[in-house]
Computed example of a mutant assay.
Amino acid sequence: MKKLIGLVFLMLILVAATTSSSSKLQTTPSIEGTWELVDFYNFDEEGNVTDTVPTADGYRQIKMFYNGKIMWTRYVPTDSVEWFGYGSYKTTDSTLTEKLEYMSASIRKIAPEFLEWNMELDLKQDYYTQIFIDEEGNRISSENYKRLDK
């Protein structure tokens, strides 16, 4: 009987440890998935948000991050110009780097062959902000996204 109680106790400890470690893994946010732009922030000289600019009616910008690759598209109902791109991305706890390898003709006209952005990243489970920084490290503006898939 003591062996049975000991075995049950050991199983409970193992189940609790497994549940605890798997819930920790689930709480670590990942940028992998599909995201939609919801609004923009502008920053002042001290790095504080000065205003929030919502997207216009009908405007949609979607980003997809999977296995180190990014694809994004933008639809603006009042604009016939196509905006999309494909490339690679890397993240750290606080940075996002996107490098476009393929892009629409409208972007190609204004961009070098390979376009790279290095941004500050604030990543949560269902929301992320990519913050654009100037040459001196000051925050300029941000794009703020919500997760579309889980």
Score class of each variant (00 low, 15 high):
residue 1 M to A: 12
residue 64 M to A: 06
residue 55 T to G: 02
residue 144 N to W: 13
residue 117 W to P: 01
residue 2 K to A: 08
residue 63 K to Q: 01
residue 53 V to I: 13
residue 86 Y to T: 01
residue 46 E to L: 11
residue 140 I to L: 15
residue 146 K to T: 06
residue 40 F to R: 05
residue 125 Q to H: 02
residue 99 K to V: 08
residue 150 K to N: 01
residue 69 K to P: 05
residue 30 S to H: 09
residue 67 N to E: 12
residue 6 G to T: 00
residue 47 G to F: 11
residue 10 L to A: 02
residue 71 M to V: 13
residue 129 T to M: 12
residue 95 T to G: 03
residue 20 S to T: 07
residue 106 S to L: 12
residue 108 R to Y: 07
residue 77 P to N: 12
residue 2 K to Q: 08
residue 51 D to Q: 01
residue 33 G to Q: 03
residue 35 W to N: 03
residue 66 Y to T: 07
residue 122 D to P: 02
residue 131 I to L: 13
residue 58 G to E: 14
residue 115 L to M: 06
residue 97 T to S: 03
residue 23 S to Y: 15
residue 52 T to E: 05
residue 9 F to P: 00
residue 136 E to Y: 15
residue 35 W to M: 05
residue 73 T to K: 10
residue 113 E to Q: 03
residue 54 P to W: 04
residue 53 V to C: 10
residue 76 V to Y: 11
residue 49 V to M: 07
residue 71 M to Q: 10
residue 130 Q to C: 15
residue 145 Y to M: 12
residue 76 V to H: 12
residue 113 E to H: 00
residue 49 V to F: 14
residue 2 K to V: 11
residue 120 E to I: 10
residue 51 D to A: 01
residue 10 L to P: 03
residue 15 V to P: 08
residue 144 N to F: 13
residue 92 T to C: 07
residue 102 Y to E: 09
residue 134 D to S: 01
residue 55 T to S: 04
residue 125 Q to Y: 02
residue 100 L to N: 04
residue 46 E to F: 06
residue 145 Y to V: 05
residue 4 L to M: 08
residue 74 R to V: 09
residue 90 K to L: 13
residue 15 V to S: 10
residue 142 S to W: 13
residue 100 L to A: 02
residue 20 S to V: 07
residue 102 Y to K: 10
residue 98 E to L: 11
residue 136 E to N: 10
residue 46 E to I: 07
residue 131 I to T: 07
residue 1 M to C: 04
residue 12 L to A: 07
residue 88 S to Y: 13
residue 44 D to P: 05
residue 53 V to S: 07
residue 86 Y to I: 06
residue 26 Q to T: 11
residue 100 L to G: 01
residue 136 E to V: 04
residue 11 M to D: 00
